[in-house]
Design a protein around this nucleic acid. Sequence first.
DNA 1: CCCGCGATAATGTCTAGACATAATGCCTCA
DNA 2: TGAGGCATTATGTCTAGACATTATCGCGGG
Lengths: 240, 240
Amino acid sequence: MISKPPGLERRIRAELEAKIRAGDWPPGHRLPTEAVLMADYGCARMTVHKAIQGLVGEGLVVRNKKAGTLVAKPHVVTAVLEIPDIAALITDRGETYAFKLLSRDIADASPDNPDERALGADGRLLILKGLHIADGEPFAFERRILNLAATPEAEAIDFSHTPPGSWLLNHVPWSQARHRITAVPADASTARLLHLPPQAACLQVERWTWRNSQGVTFVRQVFPGDRYDLVAEFSPSAEP
Amino acid sequence: MISKPPGLERRIRAELEAKIRAGDWPPGHRLPTEAVLMADYGCARMTVHKAIQGLVGEGLVVRNKKAGTLVAKPHVVTAVLEIPDIAALITDRGETYAFKLLSRDIADASPDNPDERALGADGRLLILKGLHIADGEPFAFERRILNLAATPEAEAIDFSHTPPGSWLLNHVPWSQARHRITAVPADASTARLLHLPPQAACLQVERWTWRNSQGVTFVRQVFPGDRYDLVAEFSPSAEP
DNA sequence: CCCGCGATAATGTCTAGACATAATGCCTCA
DNA sequence: TGAGGCATTATGTCTAGACATTATCGCGGG
């Protein structure tokens, strides 16, 4: 009674969702039809329809004409991974952040380099290597390839202290990406850069980014296994 | 003209999305108001409203009353990680799958074990250790804690060849989970089990699962770094 | 010049219908 | 007994409105 009424659609959705999450309605169970809910709540069909569509968006239910609405079977566990900008990640922790550019090269894409080929680029590439530093300690090593055909402005930018990831976030519009997450032993030079013993277990995140089906960038980041981990929450689709 | 008309709402949504993804409308750009789109497409407001709400669901735009609808700034990279059932993962690859139970114990939850405490369980626990095997080769080692208060049926199940993860998927309804992904060096016994050299880099996935705010299970899986990696696609929320 | 207040412009939510579409399941006919 | 077709049921999509909500902007007064 204190807070404002959250809207009927939200309420219907929340009540259905609660029944599913509590296990009252197990996977495969058929939920009431729109007509029934409409009568239960005394509202228009559009309202219950939108409520149930919300559950579809969350993947909690599947709908079939005539067959009705069924609680979905969770066959794969999906999790939403938020891969933050490293600079933001570190400053959010209250540590000081610095980026150190180790090398900068411009090269033509060569079809025999698998990283470059996957990017689908065929023109000039900007190749950057750098180190992310938190409170003076090395935090991650990254090697990045930028497709200059997709982001020609990048050639003029001074990346000696600006991390290219942060620059891209603010200058490249919406895009699509693919991530690959692996554990790798640190090779000799990476181990030295990250102040690790040779062969130390590291988390490697590779990301390919496209915009409008044109390759924009590829990056491989190596984190010391004991200094970083990824956390993914299951997504009960947050409400604003 | 070959395929059926996909519905006006879908069409509006797709056209707006295309403009955003192509970069025609950069982050921060204000898109046409519902009234304008209504006139453009000659349809009711509800239709454009639902189309734009779809974009909100994808996180592509943000809406404010009076201020209008703005293209969102991609400040964190989010990706949808599908963490499959290991048995399904392996058989999908066309390899033979086997599970070998290494140990089974029942214990009372002890508050000084951090894994058990995080689960929030305070009754009896079933503790399983096992090995996932693909084509005869060890694929992953797992240690799992099941809260018997949440899933009492589990006590009667014979897990000697059934992987507990697969059993849970089919017997526990919808739940919430939290994942933590790290790189760790294999300890001596894990290395032996997985046929790895000691200290080899491994990917470790930890998952806490709750249902109805009651802890259900905690599992820690260790994969050889060179035999498994996680792939996460960015999610432009697929359309059926 | 700044502050506050009110008009306004935008989205949020809901209604009560209409017609379309698709899968189920029954019923009929061979 | 079996197969096909049709009626039924449920969701999918859309309309044309109504009223609610709220951030912004501009204007006027102190």
